[in-house]
Amino acid sequence: MATVSFSVNGEVRALKLDTRTTLLDALREHLHLTGTKKGCDHGQCGACTVIVGGQRINSCLTLAVMHEGETVTTIEGLGTPEHMHPMQAAFVKHDGFQCGYCTPGQICSAVAVLDEIKAGIPSHVTGDLNAAPQLTNTELRERMSGNICRCGAYSNIAEAITEVAGRRA
């Protein structure tokens, strides 16, 4: 057992945990923030994506105790049903989901992707590494490909993200 303290959605949370506890299980089973989903527990599906220190990570692939003092944002921290984050609202508007299980991960990823592009971080499909990457269809689809949606809402998700980014799909 070990203690760890980090900020989750703006609130400092201290936990006493089995050191084997993943960040994902700390959120879901200990803090009861079940918006973050467990789809595979092996870093293969992206359903557990959360934003830590401004970067998106698979919370199933990291232990909670590794995040002492860090800042975690989950889907619950982005917005509420009454006050949705623009990305959440865009997903509803464009029906960018069906069963909803991959959705929190898609939304956390999408929010982080826009920041990555703004920060000039290149991807596998960026043509010119010296130029600022643009949110093209190819860039968007490449960067979102770590988040599987078996219901197949990709086309709608792309519309939602491009709308939030202020571009036409």
């Binding site: 009861h32 889907i75 049903p81 949705m84 959440q88 609202a89 509803v92 029906d95 989901f97 909803g100």
Partner: peptide
């Protein structure tokens, strides 16, 4: 018509089988 369960699902408030912690 947008899904009436959309706001719950997109904000992580929809409760799936493993998530009835109370």
């Amino acid at each position: 018509t947008s899904r009436i369960d959309g706001p719950l699902k997109t904000t992580g408030r929809a409760t799936y089988a493993y998530e009835w912690h109370d």
